[in-house]
Structure formats: C-alpha cells, structure tokens
Amino acid sequence: MGRYWRTLRRFWGTALATQLEYQLNVLVELLAVVLSLGGSLLLLSLFFGPGRELGGWSWNQALIVQGFYTVFDGMTTAWLRPNLGAIVTYVREGTLDFVLLKPIDSQFWVSLRTFAPAGLSEVVLGLGLAAWGAHQSGVVLTPAVLVTVLLMLMVAAVILYSLWFLIAATSIWFVKTWNATEVLRALLASGRYPLEAYPAPLRLLFTLVLPVAFLTTVPAEVLLGRASFPLLALGIVLSAGFFAAARSFWLFALRHYTSASS
C-alpha cells in the first residue's frame, strides 16, 4: 500500500513538472475554464426569468446542479482525459508492454499516471458555485447532510470513472475509439441540467442506463434535503456495479491484448 502511495506521489510530481514545461498551455486551460463556466451560466440563465423555473428547479437550485457538473467536468479534465485518453497511445506505440511488466497493478498505472492541474481550478470553481447556489437556496448544512453529499459525490466520481474507463479500455481492440469518449462527453453534458427538466423516457435513460442523474441531480437533491433513501441506495449499488464491470472488462481486455498482439 505504501508503495502505491509513493508511486502516486511520484506520478503526480512528474505530471506537475511536465505541465510546467508548457506554461502557456496552463494559461490557455485556465482561460478555457473561465470561458466555459461563463458560457454555461449564460446558457442556463436563458431558461430562467421572472417566475420561470426549469423542471421545478429554481435558478439558485439549478446553480447547484451546474456547480456539481463543473466539478465533474473539472475532474474529467484533470484526471480522466489525460490518463484514459493515453491508453490509446500506450496501445498504438506499444508502450503498454512496459506498463504490464511493472510489478504494479496496470489499471492503477493507466488510471492515475498523470493529472492536469488546470482541471483543479474548475473543481474549485464548481464547488464554489454549488456552495453559492446552496446558500442562496437557504440550505442549512448539517454534518449529516454534508457527509451524505460527500458520499454521493464519491459515488458519482466512481460512476464517471467507470464509464470513462469502460469506453477507454475498448481502445485495446480499436485503436481509434478516442471519439467514443466524445459520444460519452456529449451525453454527459446532459448533466448540466436537473433531471426533472427532461422528458420521462430520457429521465429513465439518464438514471439507469447512463446514470448521469447520479452525477449532478442526486447530490444536489441531497444538499436540498429532498433525496429519497432508495435512490441513494440505487446510486451506491450502481457505482459498485459499474466499477466491478470496469475492472473485469480491463482484465478481459488485457487477456485479449496478450493473446493476440505481437
């Protein structure tokens, strides 16, 4: 365990050093974060106005959803995209061989090898936005609510990671699946808005098949004190299921890789 911690520190230390090699990029990323958040808020504001709501959510409540979406978008930028996007490169350049020959779990390696600090600013901004929205909606934060929100954010992070990982792992077969993650990104963008704003069939899709609902709407509902226990339980079960699926799919993919490639 200690070895994994030490490795992780080294991984991220080198990631930081790499970023510093390209300072202009960091600047551009930061600017992109600000532009993106500004655009999202502008777009969200179009749905609101005097006496107007979005699927029963007020402007301030919708801000919480938008805030959580920004958090997970930041997580995607900081963590998922740089790592899981690189699986394709590992396969194409054959450097996956080196990873597999290290006495360390290969999924750990490909999932945590690097990170992009610019995404962290988005996470912070998102948390701030959610806090602001919660404050404006008159939320009183009790320790119990806080713990539940954090738990559901963890659940959401696991679901998001597993979805990304499942798709990224297919690049073991198809070297060009990078754009499959673009489809995922497009669909996940639906998490910008409260689930109730969508028509019923989509709501079902976003809860069970592609559980976008658990990324943003459910944690926001917990914060607003109106989440039902069965829904939370479903989220936990789903995240465990998706994670197990991602893990076994990776092992399966590796078996394919080691039996077929040359």
Partner: peptide, 12 residues
C-alpha cells in the same frame, strides 16, 4: 437533441 428535449419542456 438533448438541448431540444430541454427547451421543449421549459417555461422559457
């Protein structure tokens, strides 16, 4: 299409 489904049901 996602945006269409949102706009269709919205007050705005």
């Amino acid at each position: 299409f996602i945006m269409l489904s949102l706009w269709s049901g919205s007050d705005a």
